[in-house]
Nucleic acid binder design. Sequence first.
RNA 1: GCCGCUUUAGCUCAGCUGGUAGAGCACAUCAUUCGUAAUGAUGGGGUCACAGGUUCGAAUCCUGUAAGCGGCACCA
Length: 657
Amino acid sequence: MIHLTFPDGSVREFAAGTTGRQVAEGISKSLAKKSVAMTLGGTLTDLSDPITADASIEIVTREDPRALELIRHDAAHVMAEAVQELFPGTQVTIGPVIENGFYYDFARPEPFTTEDLPKIEAKMREIITRNAHFTKEVWSREEAKRVFAAKGEAFKLELIDAIPAGQDLKIYKQGQWFDLCRGPHMASTGQIGSAFKLTKVAGAYWRGDSTKPMLTRIYGTAWHDQVELDAYLHMLEEAEKRDHRKLGREMDLFHFQEEGPGVVFWHSKGWSMFQELIAYMRRRLRPLGYQEVNAPQLLDKSLWETSGHWGWYKENMFAAQSAGDDTEDERVFAIKPMNCPGHVQIFKHGLKSYRDLPLRMAEFGAVHRYEPSGALHGLMRVRGFTQDDAHIFCTEEQMADECLKINDLILSTYADFGFGEVVVKLSTRPEKRVGSDAVWDHAEAVMMRVLKTIEEQSGGKIKTGILEGEGAFYGPKFEYTLRDAIGREWQCGTTQVDFNLPERFGAFYVDSDGTKKTPVMIHRAICGSMERFLGILIEHFAGHFPLWFAPVQVVVATITSEADGYAEAVVDKLRAAGLRAEVDLRNEKINYKVREHSVAKVPVILVCGKREAEEGTVNIRRLGSRDQVSATLDQALADLLAEATPPDLQRKLAAAA
RNA sequence: GCCGCUUUAGCUCAGCUGGUAGAGCACAUCAUUCGUAAUGAUGGGGUCACAGGUUCGAAUCCUGUAAGCGGCACCA
């Protein structure tokens, strides 16, 4: 006999080998009907598994949040069955559950197209209606290999070989169809329900390895019910509406064109945001003891050989030479992909003393990297971008303190832009690296302490984690990931400790005892790339920027030409006070003007008609609201100015008051 | 870079199985002076991404190139 503990704490006795389904039936017929799986000791398993030892048990019904994973996984199996039924000869490979759904990778000479999806989906619904039971068998390696080889499933053979010896080889069957799978699965295909949809086809490398064959992946999404599915599809539509590439065009912020893949043409309004962002960062850096520098765009290849970039980063670099037909100058220059070598040159210029450390060198550095063509994505991944870069030359003792100072700067910057949820991850030594294990041990220990402090200081608000083996080859690093308004995560900031570059360039400082010492170099970026950060901001705010950041803050719109003179006086006054304001005197109806500027996402429309001109007032309409407020021009100006003050300056004003 | 798809006016898109281009918005002109999300009329605008090929004839079919999109790989 065995003893099973139920969620309510009760303990009941069962015969050893009782299955989860029998347990559920013992409780009630309706529970048995609704149940899709069980947890034993907290682990999700098949209802059909015989229970052989004492354990805590919980019957999982289809409504349970934990069932969603099973719904998706089962849907993947059913999709694979549907595909093999419709397209005989297609090999199946792997089909895991992912966020919001599932996919399955298939090998077939002819790739699938989007037109195939409805057919596959219809077949899936047919299979689900058959409601075949999922059954599990444990096969021997030899048998499994024989059966899959006979079916022509070459990829499955590879998977079987990859399963560690001693681990059971499980086969799940639904009707005639079966697949190698670690499970668990629900009771039958009917429990998948109908709230699923196949979303896209894409290529994917076998085992995620670009040297291996390309398979066809079909993605699907699956949910408990239609309401959840609809909500998800709606969310996708909303995300599409705030796509920064779309908004960039609609709001006239920037464009790309064929001659410049991955490089941005910033239009006036977009550039205004770009400059506002840089101005903000500059104001933040100044009181923190940073010095801003500017290193050349183009440097002789030899310098990049010294830095090591020419050796291991060449594939990602652009090179330039004199283009003249008759030139005798054969020198090859590289367009900088990073600012660090330039900064080391500045550091090296003139003798540095330990008294100069920590030396914090910042640059809004434009860099160019030859990114793979398939990686380019709007502003998010470009070939020419501006980093809010800085390098801190310091001693090992100063390292931890500097990392914490950078952390403060990063977190407060994100907060000013409305990002409260931040994750900080420490990336540790990769396989390919420079420096002795002792140096890495020490650096990682320091960084680990810093990470702990970061978590403690935030009072638990900042989540932390470790990325094993993800560090740069020259040192460990912190990666800062923020979460936007619709829950997507973006890696932006980074702090990297570097024991390599200063030494390569022979950079040193004179220590208190008169000896030459090599400084530690900390690379850090907050926005990462200004372009990318702006892309994130556009999507985060869906174009509805806070007043201080909006490219056009105010439009003064007239109703009839009678108020033209007054409107011009108003806009002059707003501009003189430092606001980015435009005036709209066109011979158009006010409805038309309000619509147009609302669509353009201008935060404030000041309507000036005859009445306002006579009274010296303005009529204020805020974006997203139909309400209008009347105020005197002076009052409105004062209010707008206060609101348009960037958050860092507001803090400064508050501190002074 | 790899797999698939796409590329027609500034934007969004239509153009069936080949017979040499069309809409809405935008733009310009004229009329309208109208109080909070589209006033009306008229007009201009396209070597159909680029280069080849098939054909009497190509936006349409084929090949290549480029860029973009969705993934994968990459992302110091």
